[in-house]
Amino acid sequence: MNAPPAGPAAPVLVCAFAVTRTPPELAASAAATGHEEGGPLRVLRAGGLCLVVQDVPAALFDEEALAERLNRPDDLERCARAHHRGVEAAARRGPVVPLPMATLYRGDRSAEQAVAAREAVLGALLDRLRGRTEWAVKVHAAGGTANATAAGAPADSGTGAGARGRAYLSRASARRRDRQDAHGRALAEADAVDAELRRYAVDATRHRPQSERLTGRRTPQLINAAYLVEESDSAAFKHALARLTADGRHAAVEVSASGPWIPYSFARWDEAPDIMAPDTTGPSRTEPSRTEPHSTAPERTPPHRTEQRPMKQEARS
């Protein structure tokens, strides 16, 4: 490691990983060190909540240094994994609200204040995430070729340029129809997959579908979803996933999944601008009265929607 030693004199920043209600036993998880350039994980108390943090050298983590480092692929990866380790360590003994990577405070006091000011929101999130995990599911159009019809193009329409032209365009339009049909089928099947998985999930949200450049596939990503799944339903969810990936019922799509994840995608505590302000108006703002059109378990209606796909979003101005 060529990082400057974080001696007592070196200026440090406080890097926050996650909010919990139960203080995690960090001594027991000595392996979970967070960022390798920083000190040991610590727990700050803020109201009834705990914040798992680590001192990190300011020389490596201030705006300038970090912005530069995170734009370097190797540092970005190390940083992301380090953050995930810190969050995992915090999650050992109960639900967590994972914070975004590189949530940095100038000192313990401002970190504690930030959490205390949002105690109601964070508490509601912790209740909502308790005993639930997240599954990442991506649905791609299947790579199969649209080579069907076309072969039966009319061969009896005489000779010469005209006939060749007609044959060509009938092939071309058949190809086009095939492509459109295949895409329509894939979209419909992707929706069916989503609907099936939602049956076993408490909530679902979408990330932006990844481009073909990122996925390295030749077919488009149709759905990039995250599902919040109750612990007791996770076996059923996994079975549903296995069925969807295995049985050829949805031949026009390919389904891939990863999980279980700590529910990062359902823990966006600073998303709504009005939550940024210190919570002085009571719990009403954490419990929007919006109903869940998709929920199959109304009694579990979660307080937050994190739907990120604009077309599915209710009007919200």
Binding site: L13, A16, F61, D62, E63, L66, A80, H83, H84, V87, P98, L99, P100, M101, A102, T103, L104, Y105, R106, S110, A114, A136, H207, N224, W261, Y264, S265, R268, W269, D270, M276
Partner: peptide, 14 residues
Amino acid sequence: ERVLDKGIVIAGDI
């Protein structure tokens, strides 16, 4: 996708 908060860190001092 999960740990980067849409590219901009909005919690925290920095």
